[in-house]
């Protein structure tokens, strides 16, 4: 219940924050945004950073905007803001995901960027980030760089964010009038995290065939990943319920873990079921997006 003692820094700007981190010995500092993942870990003393750099007040890292055909979501945007954001109406997957993530209190404080940066293997946003092919923008003492979602998750709780870097925002392609995306999840009964969570995006061509699909998977085990086998199977097909279901029958790139709540076989089954359900809803949304 009680974290180990730490130093606490409240940088006044992003630049300031980057500078504070640059001054730290590697591995000793942790970045505090909403704190919904970090503080529980510290309370159980599973983490004991010497320094907490609280970026939670940097408003420059918050908010949703649109520029040159892309949507920009600030790292400090809360789940609750994503649940209700009118700017994201074209991608209902955001509200849908935020609505099944954690609980209202967690959504009020937890942030989009924090969830991606922590990369918990059962977090929800990584699946959406992958399915919508987001780009993460990072800022460090050596400047800015971008990382594509498919390169972002490098393992369990590890990402491409380097020591001293801060995730500032994420960009996504805006809706194009022929795409839809959806998220389907099985909650672990106690924690509410994903036993399996699948975000799917489908883009249709003028003939109603699947021009392209992307499928992001979380909760199964290891790092969140793209189910490319499903994407390839669906490419160019005229989708029907049975085609969607068959495309999800086997996902060889999944390497499911065993735990109290789900063994590997069951996780594979949940992946099949929720991939089908996410694709089905994504398809409906893609069809209804077409003017």
């Amino acid at each position: 219940m009680i974290p180990a003692a730490f130093e606490y820094a409240v940088p006044r700007s992003l630049e300031d924050a980057v500078a504070v981190l640059a001054d730290c010995e590697a591995g000793t500092a942790a970045i505090l945004a909403g704190g919904m993942s970090l503080l529980p870990t510290m309370k159980l003393r599973l983490a004991a950073p010497a320094l907490l750099v609280d970026i939670g007040r940097l408003r420059e890292l918050a908010g949703i905007s649109r520029a040159s055909g892309r949507l920009r979501i600030g790292a400090l945007t809360t789940h609750a803001e994503l649940l209700a954001a009118p700017e994201l109406a074209e991608w209902r997957v955001f509200a849908e995901t935020a609505g099944v993530l954690g609980d209202p209190q967690v959504r009020n404080r937890g942030t989009f960027g924090g969830s991606l940066a922590q990369a918990h293997p059962a977090a929800d946003w990584p699946a959406v980030f992958l399915a919508l092919r987001g780009v993460a923008c990072l800022r460090g003492s050596r400047g800015e760089r971008s990382v594509r979602s498919e390169d972002f998750f490098t393992g369990v709780l590890t990402t491409a964010i380097a020591e001293g870097e801060i995730l500032t925002h994420v960009t996504f392609p805006a809706g194009d009038g022929r795409s839809g995306a959806a998220y389907s999840k099985m909650r672990q009964q106690a924690s509410g995290m994903a036993l399996a969570g699948v975000a799917a995006r489908i883009t249709l061509d003028t003939a109603g065939r699947i021009e392209e699909s992307t499928v992001g998977v979380t909760g199964i085990g290891g790092a969140p990943f793209r189910a490319r086998s499903i994407e390839q199977r669906l490419s160019g097909l005229l989708p029907t319920p049975s085609i969607l279901e068959e495309s999800c029958a086997d996902v060889p790139e999944a390497d499911p873990t065993n735990d109290l709540h789900a063994d590997a076989d069951y996780r594979r089954q949940l992946l099949r079921v929720h991939a089908t359900r996410a694709l089905t809803r994504a398809l409906e949304r893609a069809r209804s997006a077409i003017p």
């Binding site: 672990q188 009964q189 106690a190 924690s191 109290l260 709540h261």
Partner: peptide, 23 residues
């Protein structure tokens, strides 16, 4: 439907917090 205080073969509780024990 939900609750069970189970142990692994070494006697470690598998549901030792409300993150794993579902009420």
């Amino acid at each position: 439907l939900m609750e069970g205080a189970s142990y692994d073969s070494a006697g470690q509780p598998l549901a030792a917090s409300l993150l794993d024990y579902a009420t």
